[in-house]
Write a protein that binds this DNA or RNA. Sequence first.
DNA 1: AATGCGGGGAA
DNA 2: TTCCCAGCATT
Length: 359
Amino acid sequence: MRGVKIKNDDFKRIQDSLIFWYQINKRNLPWRQTNDAYCIWLSEIILQQTRVNQGLPYYVAFVETFPTLSHFANASLNQILKLWQGLGYYSRARNMHEAAKQLIHNGGVFPADYNALLKIKGIGSYTAAAIASFAFNLPHAVVDGNVYRVLSRYFGIGTPINSAVGKKQFAELAQRMLPGQNSATYNQAIMELGALICKPEQANCKHCPLQLGCYANATKQLNLLPVKTAAKPVKKRYMYFVLFHDNERLYLKQRTDKDIWQNLYVLPYIETATQQPIDKILESKFLKEFMEQHDVTVTVHEKTITHKLTHQHLITQFVNCRVKKLPANNNYKLSNSRQLNNYAVPRLIEKYLTEQGWL
DNA sequence: AATGCGGGGAA
DNA sequence: TTCCCAGCATT
C-alpha cells in the first residue's frame, strides 16, 4: 500500500465528483424523502448490517404501523419483535424499544447533537453521525462498510478496518473529507457509491466517478482492499425441535438466555454437543416421558436442516409429536394457529411451521 | 481487543 | 460455497 499522503486540494474534486454522480444515479428510497429524526433513526437501525433490499419492506411496514416515536414507544416489545421477525439481529428491536420509551420519557424529541445521540441505546458512532447528518444537517461523517471500502481502495489504505487503529484512522479521514456545504448529500453519496459501484466484489470501476486517482484501480488491487483481520471459524450446534401438538394447539417456548434469538419463541428442543441419530433423541428423557404418558403419533422429518447464521451453523432436525389432546404445561405456552401470528419466531421455525400448515 | 448477534443476496 | 451487508453492546 502506498503511504497515505492526501492533499486538501484533492478533496474538493472528490466531493464534487461524488455529489454530481449521486444526483444522477441515486436510488429513490423512502428515508431519503424525509428529515424526520424518528424515520431516519428507524431506517438507520434497520439498515445496520442489512442490505437495502432486505430492509426496505420492513421500513415501510414499521412506518405504517408506528408512524411516530410515541406509537413505537407505546407498542409492546412482542408486537415490535413480530414485525421485526425475519430481519435478524433482534437486539436492535429490543434496544430501539428501550430507547423509544426513554426518549418519550424525556420529552419525545431526538437530541440534535452527536454525543447525545451516541448515548442512546443501540446508537453507535455510525448511526449517531447518520442521524446528526440526515435529520439535523450537522457536519458529521458517516463511516460504514461502504465508506471503509471506498476510502481504503481510493487511497490505498491497508490498515485493517476492524482494528482499533483502523477505525480511528478511517474516521479521521472521513471527517476530513466531509465538505462544509452539502455534508448530508456527500454522506449519502459516498455510501451510495460503495453500494452501487465500489462493490465488495466486481467493482464497476468503468463507471466510477473516482476512477482517476483511485489507488486500487490503478494497481488492480480491488480484491485486496479493504483489509480485514480473519474471522473466527463458525461454531456448529445440534438442535432437535419437537412440534408437540394436537392439531389444534402446540407448545412454544420463549427464549430468554443471552444467546441467539433472545425474546423470540421456538418449539421445545434439546441441544446436544455432537450430532445424534434421531432414534437416540426419541429415546431421550425429554421425549420418552412424554411418549409414555400420552398416546403419541410420531413423525420424524428425516432430513436434517442446516440453518446458517453468520457465526454459527445450526444442524437441526424436526420431530412431529401429535397427541389427542395437548395438556397445559408449566414450561411451555400453548398456542393455536391464530395466536401464533402474535409470536415472533426465527426463520427456521417459521419455515417449518409454514410447511406443517400452522402459519 | 475480542466476542456474539440473523438472515439473505450475489458471484 | 464464500463474502458481507447504512453496526452495536458486552466483556
